[in-house]
Design a protein around this nucleic acid. Structure first.
Lengths: 203, 203
DNA sequence: CGTCCGATATATCGAGTCGATACATCGAAG
DNA sequence: CTTCGATGTATCGACTCGATATATCGGACG
């Protein structure tokens, strides 16, 4: 679902890889950081699919600056530099923008009930872009999440009850803490769902 | 760190893959479930490293039962069945036990400060086996975790403060909820650390 | 002035995990 | 007797991760 995150950020602003990584760590919460080993391949996939494309970097001023370096470089290297210069700013930046296909893909990914839902990260990510969803789809997202947490809670309680003797103190404490955390998650979701219904009713 | 989980469970009881997966979902909390696509390769790695080995399945009674199926099968297939039968019970189960090398590997993995710490799953897993750690190592584990959460909390607060206007309602609510959850995690850890120090002082 | 260092920036690699899928056997329900 | 769901082992391709390589930029420091 990294594609969804990238497209969501590029919807708001053109960015290059490095900056994209920083935003992913901030805007989407420090929980979901991404490595370059995922990010760059993902950008290439999206570019190959025509969902994003490299835009002119370093657009204003400075025009065609500073190729000198050390006067002469080998022909090979110079040609390589020239090729890079076409879509890159002075610093070697590759700035990406979202295309119409990318917009469509974003909608699709956001609305889809992927197999990787149920994953905490996935839900948090989708919630961060929930403003792009129609109200009913948003409610569906919240309620699917709630159902997952209720299920998790049931399994946690079962595990605590079943293993009340076999579990050591550390595991038991962890389970109890997880149970409370899950209960709070559900309460929080209930609040969101309630808000959502009120908004809906008001329309 | 799946290896650690497997070895930890096999320490207590000999198990086969399918059962192992179920235990991982129960004993270690429903948060950390594992797929077969990870489990079986991991078992093969451990077996290749001599950390676990397949033990005699279906040990008592029934001796050499029920090969018939449908009277005759092709020589190829029969030979395959015979090979399997050596380390497998009637149902094709492959039961694994931990070796001395496995015990050593377990200690090593549990004590190591892996790069994949900081990951929530990793900590939960190690905590589940914390009873095998000496008291000081246990304290170190808890305090490293606490430091990570404090750091996460700081970044969460920064993100909320920085993006107070740019963040939409859903993201903001998620951040605030995450902040509270992290605060509770830290309080919980403080309780564990306090208990740990009391135990230590009592010895 | 140079030169060294840390932040910026892109990229690839191997290892590990995942969900999907295939295949086979067993027990029970119909 | 047959079908069906649970048990059970296994592999595949896609994806992510941490580590690492490479290069440029801006500023600190002598």
């Amino acid at each position: 679902m990294l594609e969804l995150a990238i497209l969501g950020l590029l919807k708001e602003q053109e960015l290059h890889g490095y900056e994209l990584k920083k935003r992913l760590g901030e805007a989407l919460g420090p929980l979901s950081s991404v490595s370059f080993g995922s990010l760059y391949p993902a950008l290439n996939r999206l570019e190959a699919a025509g969902a994003v494309k490299a835009v002119e970097a370093n657009p204003g001023g400075v025009g065609a600056p500073a190729v000198p370096m050390t006067g002469s470089l080998g022909g090979e290297l110079a040609a390589y530099r020239a090729r890079r210069a076409a879509t890159r700013g002075s610093r070697g930046k590759k700035v990406y923008g979202i295309t119409d296909r990318g917009q469509a893909l974003f909608e699709e990914l956001l609305a889809a009930e992927s197999a990787t839902d149920g994953d905490d990260k996935s839900f948090n990510l989708k919630l961060a872009f929930a403003r792009y969803l129609p109200s009913d789809a948003r409610l569906g997202l919240l309620e699917r999440r709630r159902a997952q947490l209720v299920d998790r809670l049931a399994r946690l309680r079962t595990a605590v009850r079943t293993g009340r003797e076999r579990l050591d103190d550390y595991s038991r404490s962890l389970m109890e803490h997880s149970t409370e955390a899950t209960e709070r998650d559900i309460s929080w979701l209930d609040k969101l769902i309630q808000n959502e219904r009120q908004e809906e009713g008001r329309t």
